[in-house]
Design a protein around this nucleic acid. Sequence first.
RNA 1: GCGGGUAUGGCGGAAUUGGUAGACGCGCCUGACUCAAAAUCAGGUUCCUCUGGAGUGGGGGUUCGAGUCCCUCUACCCGCACCA
Length: 863
Amino acid sequence: MASPEERYNFREAEAKWQKTWAAKDSFKTEDNSSKPKYYVLEMFPYPSGRLHMGHVRNYTLGDVVARHKKAKGFNVMHPMGWDAFGLPAENAALERGVHPGKWTRQNIADMKAQFAPLGLSLDWSREISSCEPEYYKHEQKMFLDFLKGGLAYRKESWVNWDPIEHTVLANEQVIDGKGWRSGADVEQRKLNQWFLKITHYAEDLLQAIETLDRWPDKVRLMQHNWIGRSEGARVTWPLTDAGGKETGDTLEVFTTRPDTLFGASFCAISAQHPVAAKLAESNPALVEFIAECSKGGTSTAAIETAEKMGFDTGLKAAHPFIPGKTVPLYVANFVLMAYGTGAIFGCPGHDERDMEFARKYGLPVKCVVAPVGADPEAFAAELETGNVAFTDDGVAIHSEFLNGLKVDAAKRAAIAKLESLGRGKGTVQYRLRDWGISRQRYWGCPIPIIHCDSCGAVPVPDKDLPVTLPEDVTFDTPGNPLARHPTWKHVKCPTCNKPALRETDTFDTFFESSWYFARFCSPHVTDRPFNEVEAMKWLPVDQYIGGVEHAVLHLLYSRFFTRAMSDCGYLSLKEPFAGMFTQGMVCHETYRAADGTWLEPGSVDWNGTTATHNGAPVAVGRSEKMSKSKKNTVDPARILDTFGADAARLFMLSDSPPDRDLEWTDAGIEGAWRYLNRLWRLATMANEIPQAPLPTMLDPGPAGLLRQIHRTIAAVGDDLEKFRFNSAVARIRELTNAVNDQDRDAIGGDAVFRFGVEILAQLINPLTPHIAEEIWQLLGNAAILTEAPWPSHDPALLEDDTVTIAVQVNGKLRGTITVAKTADKAACEAAALVLGPVQKQLDGKPPKKVIIVPGKIVNIVAA
RNA sequence: GCGGGUAUGGCGGAAUUGGUAGACGCGCCUGACUCAAAAUCAGGUUCCUCUGGAGUGGGGGUUCGAGUCCCUCUACCCGCACCA
């Protein structure tokens, strides 16, 4: 039984070691080191003011990697900073009247204090905060360099506009066609916006996914789909009016199916297409139709239910292959201006959307592709009278020079013909769009541009950078505080000195997070974003860790930025993150009262198996990501206070593989806490054994334990390298059990016992560093464990001299035999055949066949 | 709709290349200690009609041997979503 003094005092120990590490600067990256470098990075947090379990899991995972790599002899860089611009700061300003900067900086201080008890091996000397001019001034310069290099531009584009908030909304902020905060119907508006030309790198970003072999397949696939490469053709269709007279305009459409051009029965353009705008000038009915299309329309629900609608313009488009043939031109709500050319040709026979549209507006359906082997005429007759398009591979029919060609060959032939006729050409189209970075927000990095009536958009000269945010702003009226600030935007044009206006938009906050990993390499340089030599030394990040929710945007933007920075001379690198790991979410059961309101876990009582709240029944919901809205959060501060950092870390690491969701349970954390006490008790027992070299002669028991110790060293090292932290914990616990069971009276028993505890401390150090240090010190080691090398294993001790192998009859286990490792097949067979259950199965008959895999299995095939 | 993933005891999850399924933990059960409880310690715990048999979501296949490979079905999860 553990007396109070035997119990592990985590409060004292954890505080002590955190102080020791800080005093020794244990985690400061070495400046001039001959060791190989290793850069571990977790996605820097938004300073909300409160650390949550997701953070704890993220930083614990990174800490395991950092500490393990340090022990393995690497010069580790493990920095931390703050992704400090963002909307919540403005919301706080709105709700509480506190300035976003003050609120943010206070949150950073609060969160930093909450980080401390976790005992993370962070190098705080590299701390950065993206909302400070020392940080964002560099990205203003970078933006201007991008502009100079043709990687940034300004253009009018359609955006979601909230008419009450007077601001642009991201697609994610539009819920069912309404502004997420105002509830107002969102309008489509055309605004001047700044863009970064990520599409310039579309092909390279796609191709290079292949090289990211230490990224999760899931993330690579998501990026692949997001970039969305499709091969096809652009086809020009001259437009004529109802009387057949050419209007002088030509329509350009993009298609991936030029092989189906002979099946064309209409063309359609987006409501936002310039031709539609031109026609609308003299057509009030079209104006109304376009307005209808612009309403709402961006929410997923709206798109799913939206019926296809078209407006016949009366114009005709001339077919590229069939002289004299024209098809009607529609404005249609399902054509997207942002993809391809904003115009399509419709082939109802071989496209489901076109089929739906054709049936609604009574347009012809012509079959031009038939399945291989089908009777073309019978198939065509069926297709042309039905409502289902045929979109699979097949053979071209009713298509003149394409007849008989399969889809791929027909595409090539059609493109060749288009090119020879001057009516189109083969192209590659990407789904990826340029990154709109303008936000009508205060709490972001000002875009360093001055708009002059005479000179246009003029870059702020270098000497005037950074453009800093004004402090005296108000949030009591909707819209951008920068735009209505009385003086801030009024400046002189740097070129002509006439009165001009500052750009009042700020950068999307993804801008800051697209290059912070490079800033960490030299966080204190003032004249440029980072020192190129340092960046090239540390980058790419060896191991990046974060949530899968950033699989596309943040990770793709960072890959783009690295290329753009390279092309602008900042460094010479393509990929910022060599290794990427996406961790799972931290989940908890959800509870709802009868009236549907969510209940906190702490307010739910358990009567046997049913949950109650103040005696009333509670519906127990499934486990979901911890969130304030569902009240299923657990406060890390409370857990750290009750069980300590090591117990919290151990539970998070042991219960689920790190890439899967983790179910937080009270029982789980208690189990981790129990284990630490068990380990501590073993340590106090080991401490009573004098330190001495291992004897050369050991009884079989201690000899076996010694082999298990070496096997565990090897296995845990391997598990840590491969992010199998839950397995590593299992192996360590297994060894703990074996050490605990060691017969101390056997020859060498004590010595191997003590050795085992020492190794346990070293193996568990990356996972639960405080108790590991405490045990290490208890056992008389003068130096701290954080500075000790990873234990090495003796390959000769990994395997036993004997091996126990399974004996099967017809594939079913009937027993085991223990033979010498070197036993030959005949010996194994002989040993297996004499087993009682084997003889019973054979029933006196000789085996038909015996399969022996040395060291693995004997399988006897009975007649 | 398109693309991807997952499915193993009461629960979380183990199981290199096909080779003793259920490691490790949670929970539960029994015992010790205790006036009692908690904590702790020791033991047990896939299921069943239990000297045997069944078993890794269902069905089928390949193999001496399948959680692992192939086909098929089902359920759930994730990403994209009128992308021409």
